Amino acid sequence: MKNTLKNITENKIFEWSVVSVIILSALLIGAKTYHLPPTLVHFLTYADWAVTLFFLAEITMRFIACDDKKRFFKSGWNVFDTLIVVVSLIPIEDSEMALIGRLVRVFRVLRMVSIVPELRILINSLLKAMPQLSYVMLLMFIIFYIYGAVGSFFFNTINPVLWGDIATSMLTLFRVMTFEDWTDVMYETMETYPLSWSFYLSFIFFTAFAFLNMVIGIVVSVLEKENAAHDRLLLEQNEEELNQLDKIQQELDEIKALIRSGQR
């Protein structure tokens, strides 16, 4: 039964079936945000329980098919899937915890990441890039803080809503970095300080051009390393399978030779 379940869980048809059910679960969650007739609400409730039972059966099959049961829960994705399924089984729809139950069902859509290997590579790349990204984000925060303080000192009297304090100034600078009507902010201060355009252009150069491109470069670099590691792993698995096939072929040749010698 273990080998049968392993073949089923590793089958592409089964994987795409799970993906289809996850998409159906997302559609059910979206449908519940509308005002629906009571009959349709009951139908969605039963459908939601059917999806939950399917996920329970799927995670159970994967657990039974795993060669090392302790190693199964060493994977963060398996732990995440198990927690989502277990919490979804708790009947809390009509209690004070109904909001938490709905939030957990929303997070079931994230199971798409644990099922599709390409999405797992993307998430793992982002997590591994976080140590390098943290230094870039720290440097970006320093730039925000310096420019926010300067903007608050000079432009506070022009528009207190945008430059009243350093926190508000940093929010305004975030608006400038994302190019959300930033020229209106610049032209307003240029009426009092004609050279204030240099303040905005230098800030945009440091943040939108330099630091954001550094973030993209770090993520792409880590993603390339993850893809290369994944390709090496697949290559090693294929080599192991080829070696096993070679050994089987050699044993078959030896058996054939013994049979022929016996017939002689």
Rank of each mutant, 00 (worst) to 15 (best):
K74E: 15
N243H: 10
I248G: 02
N159R: 07
V85Y: 01
I143D: 05
A149I: 06
E191L: 12
K225P: 00
L235K: 13
V51Y: 02
E240L: 13
R264K: 14
F199E: 02
N243T: 11
I248V: 11
I8V: 14
F141R: 03
M186I: 06
M177I: 10
R264W: 06
Q237W: 01
L162M: 10
T168P: 00
I146T: 10
V185F: 08
V85F: 01
L5H: 09
L171A: 10
E239K: 09
L173F: 04
L195I: 07
W182M: 08
R111C: 04
G101N: 02
M130V: 09
L201Y: 12
S17I: 14
T82D: 04
I115G: 01
I90W: 09
T189R: 01
L139D: 05
E15F: 01
H35M: 11
A208N: 12
L133Q: 08
L173Y: 01
S25T: 09
A257R: 12
I8M: 07
F43I: 12
V87C: 12
L234V: 09
L138S: 14
V185T: 10
R111K: 10
L119E: 05
S198W: 11
A167V: 13
M190C: 11
M190Q: 15
G151T: 05
T33A: 11
G76I: 06
K2A: 06
L44R: 02
S88P: 01
P38R: 05
F211C: 12
A129V: 08
I146Y: 08
F80Q: 00
N243I: 06
I204D: 00
